[in-house]
Structures are given as structure tokens and as C-alpha cells.
């Protein structure tokens, strides 16, 4: 009998194997990577009783990604509603489900949010590079073929566990999806904010920003009234997750999981990890608002989030 697997019958535009990310290697120029909506990713693993940082599939947009099972397997789906169907029957996100041998799972297009996470028993089986299975196209690292490439037609997904211990999301659990009107993103003001004109500091927090088309796992550009820094270029320095970088055109770029490790544009601050997860779910055109928060408050909210999984 052949190994239990899912075969990619048709590849969508972008489905990547991701785990929590690659840490402790930033000084070697290696980016963090990892699931962009780390909260939905962890809930997907939680639903199957997996270790929370087990490798899963990050599915962007859907685009008719089609997977076929060769044996019965329990999977979990969280994050964006990509109008997924199992043999034509709609699947409810944020739950686990049985996929039977011969059944077909299709992800069509975003109904709400942008990235769905599909978890497998025990986590996906894929080579580990520098301590992580995260797949980074720009760096040609990770993925089934160790070339950083997204899933392609004919790929075969296998997993590490033989069975799952399914559970349900706790009552009232909120996942980081965009709000219908304006999505609020918490941001910790950085020390370089002192080099921005007072007017720009006001504008940063008092206007709706629009998520631009130019958005990927490296950075997400926001458009709105331009912000001006008195710093021109700066000497390149390490960049944290969520950094709000202001290039000369004054339109912020939020640096995400696959960002370059060092960079030389002035920064207003950084989104909190929870705000990064929400932003990762925003389609181009979504209205967002930046909201200042202290590092201490942000850490308290982050710890409270982690407690939900204990």
C-alpha cells in the first residue's frame, strides 16, 4: 500500500509550506519566513492536536488549487474563507474535517481574508533548512524540492503523524481577519519617529490607508497622504517584523516575514505581531488605520494571545 498523501492535481497561484519561521539566522542574511498569519496557522495545528508550530500549507487566494487524497485523513482549515469545497460541498473554515480517499479539495477565491491554513496530522513532511521548513522563494530555501518554490501540479504532500486528536475552537475565538469598514493595526512607535515632521506623525495615525496591489510576503505597501522623514537614507541596519518603512515617496511599506534582514530606509516604528497577522489577511484595496500602542501594552496583548493555546 502506498504512503498516505495528497496530490496536487492543479496548483493555484501561491501555496507554500510554512512553519513558525527560521530564527537565530538573521545575522547570516537569512530571512525569518514562516506563516504570515501566525495566529490562524497555530489554530490550524491546534485543531488537530499537533505541536502548534508544525509545518502547514499557507494558501494565498486559492485560485483553484486542487488536492486529491489517496487515503482517509483528518485535516484542519483556518484563516481566510477561500470558498473551499470537498467534492463540491462547501467547507466551514476554522474546523477540522475528514477527507476520504479519492475526494477532491478545491480552494477557489477569497470570500473573506487572503490566506488560509491547511494543517495535517503531525505536520507536513518537508526538508528542514537552518532549523525550519519555511519556504522562501526569494532565497531559494525550503519547500518540497528545496528550491523555495510554491506547490506545483504533481507535487505530493505527506505528513508526519498517523492520526489526529481533533478538537474544536474555544467558544468566542476571534481569528485575525480584516474588518468590513476599517481594519485597525496596532503599531509601536520607534525611536526614529522623532525624525518625522509633526504633521507626518499626525497623518500617520489620522487617515485611512489603503493596502496597495504591491503586496507580498516581503512587504505590503500602504497608500495615502505621504509621510516625510528628515532622515534621508540611513546606514543599513537590522529590520524587525512589521517595520513601517518610509521610502522617499512617503508611502509606507510594512515589512513582513520574508523581508530583507537589513535595510536603509527610515522607519516610523513596527506593527505588533498581531497586527501583522491581520494585515496578512488584507486584500489590496482594504482600508486600514494605524493605531499607536506602547511596547509594554503590545507585549501584554501578545502574551494573552499565547495563553489561549496553553
Amino acid at each position: 500500500m502506498s504512503q498516505p498523501m495528497l496530490t496536487v492535481k492543479q496548483a493555484g497561484p501561491l501555496a507554500l509550506i510554512q512553519d513558525a519561521g527560521r530564527f537565530g539566522v538573521g545575522h547570516l542574511g537569512v530571512t525569518q519566513g514562516g506563516a504570515a498569519d501566525w495566529i490562524a496557522f497555530r489554530w490550524a495545528n491546534w485543531l488537530l492536536g499537533n505541536p502548534l508550530e508544525s509545518a502547514a500549507l499557507e494558501i494565498v487566494m486559492g485560485g483553484n488549487l486542487t488536492l486529491v487524497a489517496n487515503s482517509d485523513v483528518r485535516l484542519a482549515l483556518t484563516g481566510a474563507d477561500l470558498a473551499a469545497t470537498l467534492d463540491g460541498q462547501p467547507l466551514t473554515p476554522n474546523d477540522s474535517f475528514m477527507m476520504q480517499a479519492g475526494q477532491t479539495l478545491v480552494f477557489r477565491q477569497p470570500k473573506k481574508g487572503l490566506r488560509a491554513y491547511l494543517a495535517f496530522p503531525g505536520g507536513l513532511d518537508a526538508p528542514e533548512v537552518l532549523g525550519s521548513q519555511a519556504c522562501t522563494a526569494r532565497e531559494q530555501i525550503g519547500g518540497l524540492h528545496e528550491d523555495g518554490k510554491p506547490l506545483k501540479t504533481g507535487d505530493q504532500l505527506t505528513w508526519k503523524g498517523s492520526s489526529a486528536t481533533p478538537r474544536q475552537l474555544p467558544q468566542g475565538t476571534q481569528l485575525p481577519l480584516p474588518d468590513s469598514e476599517e481594519t485597525v493595526l496596532d503599531m509601536v512607535l520607534g525611536s526614529q519617529a522623532a525624525h518625522f515632521a509633526g504633521r507626518s506623525l499626525f497623518d500617520a495615525f489620522n487617515q485611512p490607508w489603503t493596502v496597495d496591489q504591491r503586496a507580498d510576503r516581503m512587504g505590503i505597501r500602504l497608500t495615502g497622504k505621504a509621510l516625510n522623514s528628515r532622515l534621508g537614507g540611513i546606514v543599513s541596519e537590522g529590520i524587525p517584523l512589521g517595520a513601517v518603512q518610509i521610502p522617499p515617496d512617503g508611502q509606507p511599506i510594512i515589512l513582513m516575514n520574508d523581508r530583507q534582514t537589513i535595510g536603509g530606509y527610515p522607519r516610523l516604528g513596527a506593527l505588533t505581531p498581531m497586527a501583522c497577522a491581520r494585515l496578512a489577511q488584507c486584500l489590496p484595496g482594504t482600508k486600514v488605520r494605524l493605531q499607536p500602542i506602547s511596547a509594554t501594552q503590545a507585549q501584554a496583548a501578545y502574551r494573552a494571545q499565547l495563553l489561549k493555546w496553553q
Partner: peptide, 16 residues
Amino acid sequence: ETAAMDALTVRLFDAI
């Protein structure tokens, strides 16, 4: 300097 919720920039010099 504060860089992010959980990141600090330690600045030692101004020029390369």
C-alpha cells in the same frame, strides 16, 4: 532605540 514590540536597536556609531 525602540525598534518594535520585542526588538531594540543598539546604536554604537553614526557612519560606516
